[in-house]
Computed example of a mutant assay.
Amino acid sequence: METFVEAGDGYRLWVETAGEDDLPPLLLVMGAGASGLGWPDALVARLARHHRVIRYDHRDTGRSTRAFHERPYAVRDLAGDAVAVLDALSVDRAHVAGMSMGGYLVQLLLLDHPRRLLSAALWGTSVLGGARPDPEIRDEDLPGPDPRLLAMWEQMGQERDREAELEWRVEHWRLLNGDVLPFDAQEFGDLERRVAAHSGTWRQSSAHALADQSGMERGEELARVTVPTLVVDAPEDPITPPPHAARLARAIPSARLVTVPGLGHALGSAAVPPLADAILAHTRSVDADGRTS
Rank of each mutant, 00 (worst) to 15 (best):
residue 123 W to V: 01
residue 183 F to M: 05
residue 58 H to D: 12
residue 153 W to M: 00
residue 74 A to Q: 10
residue 90 S to L: 07
residue 104 Y to M: 15
residue 1 M to F: 02
residue 231 V to R: 13
residue 40 P to Y: 13
residue 70 E to N: 04
residue 219 G to W: 08
residue 91 V to R: 09
residue 96 V to S: 14
residue 4 F to W: 12
residue 169 R to K: 15
residue 157 G to Y: 01
residue 5 V to A: 01
residue 119 S to K: 03
residue 211 A to Y: 13
residue 246 A to P: 08
residue 39 W to Y: 01
residue 266 A to R: 09
residue 247 R to N: 12
residue 100 S to C: 09
residue 113 H to E: 15
residue 110 L to D: 08
residue 251 A to T: 08
residue 10 G to P: 02
residue 191 L to E: 06
residue 157 G to V: 03
residue 111 L to M: 04
residue 106 V to C: 05
residue 188 F to Q: 03
residue 96 V to W: 14
residue 143 P to K: 11
residue 122 L to Q: 10
residue 193 R to F: 01
residue 5 V to R: 00
residue 236 E to M: 15
residue 222 L to V: 06
residue 260 V to H: 06
residue 24 P to I: 05
residue 203 R to Y: 01
residue 261 P to D: 02
residue 188 F to K: 03
residue 186 Q to C: 00
residue 142 L to M: 09
residue 118 L to H: 07
residue 259 T to S: 12
residue 55 R to M: 02
residue 265 H to K: 05
residue 174 R to A: 11
residue 121 A to V: 09
residue 101 M to N: 03
residue 275 L to M: 07
residue 214 S to V: 04
residue 15 V to W: 14
residue 204 Q to H: 01
residue 54 I to G: 03
residue 74 A to F: 11
residue 104 Y to W: 14
residue 59 R to E: 03
residue 25 P to C: 07
residue 55 R to Q: 01
residue 255 A to D: 00
residue 46 R to C: 06
residue 58 H to W: 13
residue 3 T to Y: 01
residue 165 E to T: 12
residue 93 R to P: 13
residue 178 G to V: 15
residue 260 V to A: 01
residue 271 A to D: 11
residue 35 S to E: 11
residue 182 P to S: 12
residue 83 V to K: 02
residue 120 A to H: 09
residue 55 R to I: 00
residue 82 A to M: 01
residue 174 R to K: 15
residue 20 E to V: 10
residue 38 G to I: 07
residue 29 V to A: 04
residue 200 G to N: 13
residue 4 F to P: 04
residue 237 D to E: 09
residue 59 R to M: 05
residue 170 V to D: 05
residue 136 E to C: 03
residue 245 A to C: 06
residue 37 L to T: 13
residue 255 A to K: 00
residue 152 M to C: 05
residue 217 E to P: 07
residue 234 A to N: 08
residue 1 M to E: 04
residue 87 D to R: 12
residue 121 A to E: 09
residue 12 R to E: 14
